[in-house]
């Protein structure tokens, strides 16, 4: 297993992409990366931290050596969410959640909003089966700056769940430029995901 990468002589973003590709091919509990410039050092450190590694770096002749370690029994790192690079493990279902508004159910909107936040907060309980959460209509507001939904959804995104908001809806509510988490999507993608998913839960 190649867990030592020499990225000296490479400029951004090549070192990060090299590390990313390596980690996509194999899950490594330890990795060492050599780089020769400060920007590459910081970027590779950020990437490994983002992937849940405990990261250290030291100066060596002609550059830096970056080490990342991850796995059981390494303190804080053990509680990090699964890496965002999602593998298609056999036996895992793909659940798509479609959020169509700001409120859960009908009756009282205040209650409905509280329920919806509670729903989003509880979604991680689905574990690795949770595949995508797509937001349409008023639901897209959860992904925009200022919403309490942002940290919740960022947590899901960090755990590898794809978060996507309908672009037309973001524009309609004037939050296209302030969307904080996930990607912008369209109806064709949403329909495609519905077809690909093993089950679709609409709220």
């Amino acid at each position: 297993m190649n867990n030592k990468l020499d990225c000296r002589g490479q400029n951004c973003p090549v070192p990060v992409l090299t590390v990313k590709k390596t980690l996509e091919e194999a899950s490594l509990s330890a990795i060492t990366v050599l780089v020769d410039n400060e920007a590459a050092r910081q970027n590779v450190c950020r990437f490994l931290e983002h992937q849940g590694y405990a990261v250290g770096s030291e100066g060596i002749e002609g550059g830096f050596r970056i080490t990342g370690t991850r796995g059981e029994g390494t303190g804080a790192v053990a509680s990090e969410p699964a890496p965002p690079v999602r593998e298609r493990a056999t036996g895992r279902r793909r659940v798509m959640v479609l959020v169509t508004g700001e409120h859960m159910g009908r009756g009282d909107d205040g209650l409905g909003e509280m329920l919806m936040f509670n729903f989003l907060k509880t979604l991680p309980e689905m574990g690795p089966d949770l595949w995508r959460v797509a937001f349409v209509n008023g639901g897209v507001k959860f992904t925009a700056q200022g919403s309490d939904g942002v940290p919740i959804l960022q947590g899901l995104a960090d755990a590898g769940v794809e978060i996507a908001s309908c672009g037309v809806c973001l524009a309609f509510f004037h939050v296209l430029e302030t969307m904080q988490v996930g990607t912008v999507t369209n109806m064709l993608e949403i329909v495609t995901w519905m077809q690909q998913a093993d089950s679709v839960i609409t709220v």
Partner: peptide, 21 residues
């Protein structure tokens, strides 16, 4: 105002050297 995708990529270390300068 910002590109939301840029926030994710910044967290991943896809940051141009000029930003560090």
């Amino acid at each position: 105002p910002c590109y939301p995708e840029a926030l994710q990529w910044a967290a991943m270390g896809l940051i141009p050297a000029g930003a560090y300068n």
